[in-house]
């Protein structure tokens, strides 16, 4: 071989040819598959979201997603990122509640959840954990324990007179000692995880509930505009 005695000039043209050729081939393949699967993936995601929204807003039959614009008003969007709200409407196009995504640190990793807020009752009416890596058998009771989940069927988040802060911050208490409507009955053995849920809800509701109440008409009219 020539290489052993004297380094041969690397074959530049075949190198270009093969890399560019393979690159183009791969790009075409990826684009084709991407184009073919995109609508299916989008539909899957929308369905998953819809299921979650209807779980936390039991009365809702239709969902409209809103984005917070300029930190002041809500506008309906079809798909977007950032601060999103999902308004749920019943069969008569009345706003039954708003589903809000929230997240925070749990025991093992971050927990993300979706909760439903009913402006009429001024309560949280449902909560579903979307992702969590809490210890199986202990911390994951926040997803399975029926007594714990029953807390979120009605959780008081009334505003005080100023309309900017909650009258009572949501808090998690020791199992069996819940005495006020804004308290969450915790889980013995999963103290940290159940407190994490309480903290996530408290922080998120303190931010979102005043905003939603102030601009409630955005959400209500948005629903009628978007109605077919």
């Amino acid at each position: 071989m020539t290489e052993t005695t004297q380094p041969a000039r690397p074959p530049v043209w075949p190198m270009y040819r093969s890399l560019v050729g393979i690159g183009v081939l791969c790009a075409v393949l990826i684009v084709l598959v991407f184009d073919g699967t995109r609508p299916i993936i989008a539909r899957n995601r929308a369905e998953a979201l819809e299921r979650a929204v209807f779980t936390v807003l039991p009365d809702a039959t239709r969902r409209v997603t809103f984005a917070l614009v300029d930190e002041r008003r809500f506008e309906p969007v079809t798909n977007g990122s950032g601060s999103l709200l999902h308004a749920g409407f019943d069969a008569d196009d009345r706003l039954v509640g708003v589903a809000v995504e929230a997240g925070g640190m749990g025991y093992a990793d971050t927990i993300s959840l979706l909760y439903g807020y009913s402006p009429a009752a001024e309560t949280i009416v449902g909560m579903q954990v979307l992702t969590s890596k809490e210890t199986p058998g202990l911390g994951d009771k926040i997803q399975t324990d029926e007594d714990f989940l029953a807390n979120f069927a009605a959780l008081d988040v009334k505003l005080d007179e100023t309309g900017t802060t909650l009258r009572h911050r949501i808090e998690t208490v020791k199992q069996g000692t819940k005495s006020e409507p804004w308290q969450i009955d915790g889980i013995t053995g999963a103290t940290i995880s159940s407190e994490a849920i309480g903290d996530i809800l408290a922080a998120s509701s303190a931010y979102w509930v005043p905003l939603i109440r102030r601009r409630l008409e955005d959400l209500e009219t948005g629903g009628i505009d978007a109605a077919p």
Partner: peptide, 25 residues
């Protein structure tokens, strides 16, 4: 078709393509 100087780069490109496809699927 692939010169041996760029074979690893080519293989990675090919593998990454199919991984991306699997990811979408």
């Amino acid at each position: 078709f692939i010169p041996k100087q760029v074979r690893i780069a080519s293989y990675i490109l090919i593998i990454a393509t199919f991984v991306t496809i699997v990811d979408y699927v």
